[in-house]
Amino acid sequence: MARVLISVTHLLGTGHLSRALTLARAFGTAGHEAHVMSGGMPVAHLPTDGVTLHQLPPVKSDGVNFTDLLCENGPVDDTYLQARKRAAINTLTKVRPDVFITELYPFGRRVLKAEFLAMLNTARDMAPKPLILCSVRDILAPPSKPKKALETEAVIAGYYDGVLVHSVGEITPLDVSWPVTNMLREKLLYTGYVAPELAPAHPQGVGTGEVLVTAGGGDVGMGLFRAALQAAALDPDTPYRVLVGGAAAQSNIAALFDEGLSDNVTIEPTRPDFRQMLPLAKAAICMCGYNTALDVLQSGLPAVFVPFDAGGEVEQTLRAESLSKTDGYAVIKSSDANGETLSAALRSVCAMDVRPMEEGQFQGAAQTVQSVENKLAAMR
């Protein structure tokens, strides 16, 4: 049995934390001691069974401005960040992991560079030194300057034993979004997509025949929701269910009600049984974050993706464009999303036969555990 510690900080949505917890649960299921150190805002709806969760003093981004961090009381200062760093080091030294995994860093979260480097230095100086790995999704935010890629390369070379890429290399290699050098390529370990087990259909039949509208678990998506409500008004015979996430869910729901709804619309907060609704639904209108995209792909549900692209973000757009090459999926830019464009795209994807992906391609959590076990065995 190995002790595994995953360090993750989600700043806007909840996808990074959700994926880290899925990995941690897989390690626990395999008999390992699983820990997650979370530096983002607490999230109540994500399952933590079989995982020890360590909460750092939390931070979040100021909307899509990822360089200015906020805490619950406003902007963070150096005193707050130093307290986070101490808490992170204390957690690391208390757990004394055999495997230390940083989620996204050094490919992202550079605003927390000092914190991550302090943890990496602490881990590297431990005796015995833990296996140090990085965990990244299929598509990264491409480096805006060559200097950022070079800095990332130096950190990988100096500290890391491998990079876990949660993708199928033949479908979405890391090269799609990041310059992969020979040194980096030798460290890449493709695991397949990290997703929970395929959810059974909802026992109460919730979602049957509906168009499900979601922007994930973060405080984004009002533009998507408004466009979907316009589409619902044009299609009164189809039930629409709009699921609103984030800390501001209730106020955002109230704002949508104030704008007026057609009779075929249900609006409610994000539901923990969302994945069980997918197999019964007619189609989905959603953003294209990693976890949402995988939920849709697993279910075989037709979907219209409206990727998040505020603040120059390109990750979801790259993912959506890749998926749209397959029958049953369409992409609409957020600036083009309205009732008419969504309605037309829905009619198109619902007329297609969606070809389900192989279930083995979604076993990224189990394959991650196997890859880590193989690396540990080679070290001993």
Rank of each mutant, 00 (worst) to 15 (best):
V36S: 04
P279I: 01
L112E: 10
T91G: 13
A88G: 02
L188A: 03
A149W: 11
E103D: 15
A254L: 08
M1P: 00
M352S: 15
F107H: 06
K85E: 10
R84H: 09
V369P: 01
S348K: 15
G360D: 08
F305R: 03
V194T: 15
R84N: 09
S177A: 09
A231F: 10
A284N: 02
G218I: 06
N252M: 09
I6S: 06
N264L: 07
S61K: 01
I253S: 02
R319A: 00
Q361N: 14
K85Y: 03
H35W: 09
P356L: 07
E359H: 12
V213D: 03
L224I: 00
R110W: 14
D309F: 09
S18R: 13
V99D: 06
G246D: 00
F305M: 04
L23C: 08
L198F: 01
T122N: 07
L131T: 05
I253Y: 04
V220W: 01
D138G: 02
N182E: 13
D49S: 15
L256F: 07
M379Y: 11
L12P: 15
N65H: 14
Q367D: 13
A127Y: 14
T67S: 14
H35F: 09
Q363W: 11
H35R: 04
V244G: 00
G158V: 04
V180N: 05
F305D: 01
A26I: 06
R84S: 04
S38A: 12
I285E: 02
V51A: 01
M41Y: 13
L120Y: 07
R319F: 03
V99W: 04
G312H: 02
L12V: 14
K375A: 10
V176D: 15
G15C: 05
D98V: 01
E170F: 11
E268A: 02
K129Y: 08
Y193P: 12
L23K: 03
D175G: 13
A26T: 01
V76T: 15
I267W: 05
A228I: 00
V213F: 03
L69G: 08
V59W: 13
I89S: 07
T270V: 04
S18Q: 13
K145V: 12
E33D: 05
G162L: 04
Y105R: 03
S262W: 06
S61E: 00
K94M: 12
Q298D: 02
V8D: 09
A154E: 11
E313S: 13
A2S: 15
P146A: 03
F257E: 15
G158M: 02
P307A: 00
G39S: 04
V165C: 08
S343G: 11
A283S: 02
G39F: 05
M119F: 08
A255H: 02
D295S: 05
V213M: 04
H10E: 05
K375M: 14
L12E: 13
